[in-house]
Design a protein around this nucleic acid. Structure first.
Length: 355
DNA sequence: CAAACGTGGGT
DNA sequence: TACCCAAGTTT
């Protein structure tokens, strides 16, 4: 068990290093399970800087699990607007309701029970169990995969589930009783601030440098080994801003698939000419009278690229097929994902101009 | 297990 | 511009 010895010594170095180098982050004020849980969900695939404001606003609006369980979905989506991966917040509420009904409103303290909550996978369960409940449960995220690859000089592809599982087991064997939460955070902190990806690892500042095999072998920059990414597909869309009176037409997206349940400006999944756009407006009963402007916008998702043509129309009729939202509602009530919020400044300006 | 699922920042 | 990501989970 050479690996076990190496990791065990690394753990000692990390625990000694962490207290003086931990960033002061809002979700590190306490070990309240609700706080740690919320932060972990928000931080999934999301930068610390992007999360800070959302975290503060969310807790202010919904201070505890009971409040989260009772919140209307519109409020949840508004609080999450712009953060992305919107199923995260729906699962968050599902889990809150699970906790209320199955755990009497008390966040469960065992990994297996935590893992059963909606939206909580192996990583998040390990993080909460170790940070909040001092269980020896590793939380293997992208940071930890990178740190482990390098310390062990392991060139396995970290995108393979088996590899993540192996790292989890190897780490579990050296988790330090009484300092489990600290180790979880120390590993991620090292990955986030020192053992960073791309060409910028700060090995000179690393507490594990003398133990790190990749450093010794000068393979740090080649690790971790990642799977190839698939190419994005391009989709063309035509977006319609129908203005009538002091309002613009919006509609709610389906509850399945991309941007599920969020609001959008009406749109079609292909590129329309102005003539076709006017014809569709007639078909939808809004009676477009003037084409105020048109523009091209691109919005990039992880796996799709939307190439949007947007037509802004002044219209005669607020037809029943849409919901008509004034400026205040557009900003305060309906959750527009970024792909559509792109058009909001121009919409607001036009609404402001001609009532 | 591969694909779906958002966004914004850095090089 | 194009690509890489950042504290993953669900299906």
């Amino acid at each position: 068990m050479r690996t076990n010895q190496l990791l065990s010594e690394s753990v000692e170095k990390l625990l000694a290093w962490y207290p003086a180098h931990a960033r002061d982050l809002p979700w590190r004020q306490d070990q309240e399970p609700y706080h740690v849980w919320l932060s972990e969900i928000m931080l999934q695939q999301t930068r610390v800087e992007a999360v800070k404001g959302y975290y503060r606003r969310f807790l202010q609006a919904l201070p505890d699990i009971a409040a989260l369980a009772d919140a209307p979905e519109e409020q949840l989506l508004k609080l999450w607007e712009g953060l992305g991966y919107y199923n995260r917040v729906r699962n968050l509420q599902k889990a809150a309701r699970q906790i209320m009904t199955e755990h009497s409103g008390v966040f469960p303290g065992e990994y297996a029970k935590i893992r059963k909550l909606s939206g909580i996978g192996p990583y998040t369960a390990g993080a909460i169990a170790s940070i909040c409940f001092e269980q020896p449960t590793p939380a293997v995220d992208g940071n930890v995969l990178r740190v482990m690859s390098r310390i062990l000089n392991d060139h396995s592809c970290v995108d393979l589930p088996k590899v993540k599982q192996r790292f989890t087991e190897q780490l579990a064997a050296v988790y330090p009783a009484g300092q489990c939460g600290m180790l979880t955070q120390a590993l991620m902190e090292l990955g986030a601030t020192v053992c960073v990806p791309n060409g910028a690892p700060r090995c000179d500042a690393c507490p594990v440098r003398e133990l790190c095999i990749a450093h010794e072998q000068q393979t740090v920059e080649q690790l971790p080994v990642r799977a190839e990414k698939k190419k994005r597909r391009i989709e063309h869309r035509t977006v319609f801003v129908f203005l009538c009176g002091d309002a613009a037409a919006v509609r709610k997206r389906e509850d399945k698939g991309l941007l599920a349940g969020l609001w959008e400006f009406p749109n079609l999944p292909h590129t329309c000419t102005p003539e076709e756009a006017i014809a569709w407006g007639e078909e939808m009963g809004v009676h477009p009278t003037a084409l105020l402007q048109s523009q091209e916008r691109v919005h990039i998702f992880t796996h799709i690229e939307w190439h949007m043509t947007c037509y802004f129309f002044r219209c005669l009729h607020q037809s029943d097929g849409f919901v008509w939202a004034d400026a205040d509602a557009l900003q305060g009530q309906y959750s527009l994902p970024t792909a559509f919020r792109l058009f909001l400044p121009d919409v607001l300006e036009l609404l402001n101009q001609a009532p």
